[in-house]
Design a protein around this nucleic acid. Sequence first.
DNA 1: GTCGTTACGATGCACTTGCATTGCAAAGAC
DNA 2: GTCTTTGCAATGCAAGTGCATCGTAACGAC
Lengths: 198, 198
Amino acid sequence: MPRDVDHDQRRREIVGAVWTIVARQGIEGVTLRGVAAEAGVSMGRVQHYFGTRDELVRHACRLMVEGAQAEHAAQGQALPPVERLRLLVHRAVPTTPGFTLGVAVWTAFHAKSVDDPEISAILTDAHRGGVREGAALVVEARARGDLPDGEDPAALALRLLALAEGYGARVLVGSLDAAAALAALDREIDRAAAAPRD
Amino acid sequence: MPRDVDHDQRRREIVGAVWTIVARQGIEGVTLRGVAAEAGVSMGRVQHYFGTRDELVRHACRLMVEGAQAEHAAQGQALPPVERLRLLVHRAVPTTPGFTLGVAVWTAFHAKSVDDPEISAILTDAHRGGVREGAALVVEARARGDLPDGEDPAALALRLLALAEGYGARVLVGSLDAAAALAALDREIDRAAAAPRD
DNA sequence: GTCGTTACGATGCACTTGCATTGCAAAGAC
DNA sequence: GTCTTTGCAATGCAAGTGCATCGTAACGAC
């Protein structure tokens, strides 16, 4: 067994270049040559690790979802559930350059999902995972008394996430201020914390 | 002045083909040849009316926004303001084939806006127009006593629209049921009608 | 009728694209 | 050392792309 290289590491490097390009030029901008150049590797390498362009794009989608989940888990580790919920929701709004890239890429894959069932499946999983996480945080927060009972946790989580994505999309396009979006989301969470619904 | 043809009509025919293709294969799927074939015209015609591919795509974006606005205005003509508001937010959810196409195309242009400032400008206008329309309906409904006072009309309209787009995106991807999305939106409107906020 | 203008249709071209192929070099296994 | 397997790099190629160009047919003004 010759030439022991870390395949996953190589793939991550290449996928990182894909994200950069997608955020700048959309998925149509993803070409084998362009990705290779952006990653600073040869086209042969890209081909070696991703036999096909579609596979490259799909892997980029998978890794971005996994990365976002991992990042969120790490960031909120020491925070109380309500704050972790807030963090989860804030992720959908392009504030920092990192989030902006993430939201742009996220949006691109959303559009791509209309003609790629695999992407659609990945996003569906991501959506469900997000709602599950959000609902769990709601339950946790209620157990601590930080959030009043009421609305179904999953429905509440879904509502907050959908709202956040709607605001986030507008911020990305430029028709809404990021600060205004965050403020609106915070109001929504605080209101859920202050008064029971339904 | 020879050969009197209706330019706008010709453009609409071609743009219709663009929408169809975008909904099926995304904006990357838009090629001059493909559009010509879908519209049942020659490639020369497409080139004649839209000098460049970019112009074609942008015009398709403009016409879709205008068409949506006109359609909404026509549909709700005889309805009370609250119902017109309901219609406005329901538009973002892919229920009928027509709305599904619309939401798919809308999503595609949203993604495209990251690298095309003109598209971004068109969408920004559309966003603002939507909020203005929604806010006006809120004001109108309040004047009739159908909606209680409270939240700023524009903020309420923005919240409803963002929420609708968030739900709509999930329905498009397939992670959410259209009926569930509509129900959630109706609950939101009814709640705004039942209890003042903030 | 003719003349000029417009609305195309047809074709050609330079370029980019994804992917197949080929060759080779590095690193264990022996 | 040899051998074998893997990890690439280089190149080639057919297909598809946007766009320029050229020809021409239709129609109105005169």
